[in-house]
Structures are given as C-alpha cells and as structure tokens.
Amino acid sequence: MNDVITRITMDELPGLAQKMFGEGQRLATLTAVDLGDGTLDLLYHFDKDLVLSHYRLTVPKDAVAPSISGVYFAALLVENEIKDQFGLNFSGLALDFGGHLYLADEVQNAPFCKLSLTKKA
C-alpha cells in the first residue's frame, strides 16, 4: 500500500478524533481486521481534499474501544457494524443497536472473527 499508516493507542484515539475534526478531515470509514491472535486492527481512514490518512489501532477482542461517534456522527454506523461482525464493544456509541444492526438473533455473534469461523446458523 502506498499510503502511510500511523499507529496509535487507545488513549490517543479521542484526542486524534478531535484533532482531525478540527482540521476539517472527513472520516472516510473504519476498517476492522481480525489478526487471528485475539486482537483486532481498527483502521481509521480520514480524507481531506482526496488525500487519505490512516491510523491503525490494535485492540484485544475483549477490549472496549472508545467510540468516536460523539465527534464524528458518521462513525455511528461503522462502529455498530464492527460490533456486529467482530463483537468488539464501543463505549459511548451515539446509538447502540446492541449487535443487531444487521444480524437477527439466529446468526451467531461476531461472524467475522477467525476463531469463530461460522457458517450459516
């Protein structure tokens, strides 16, 4: 990948969100990737004038990540999606679908996690 990815920690995240918001960066999206060792990569993609900047936050699966939906309302959907698909909890979600943004009760939780390689319920 050509773009630069900056590593951040959980503590830096809220400050970063504030900073990016202040700089007029648009939140493009978040991407979660299961690293297979019980941790997840959370990639925060920001965009300004068609230039992307990325920040990588590695969190354990059972951690509670701070939600940035308070700063970027747009993070609401994607954070709920990650909660659905990876079972990662966020604190301070603007609207919490409780892991049921997409998934009905029949589907096993966190279908995207590698250790719980689920097929259809």
């Binding site: 979660a32 990737v33 309302f73 959907l77």
Partner: peptide, 19 residues
C-alpha cells in the same frame, strides 16, 4: 483474501440522511 472490506457510498451517506 484475508479481509475484504467495502465502504460503499450509501454507507457514508446514511449519517447525513439521518441528520
């Protein structure tokens, strides 16, 4: 592939819609 993630335009446009 290890991970494929698709951020579609409507996904980004739903928060503005709610607003």
């Amino acid at each position: 592939l290890d991970r494929l993630r698709i951020r579609t335009p409507t996904f980004a446009n739903i928060p503005p819609l709610l607003a």
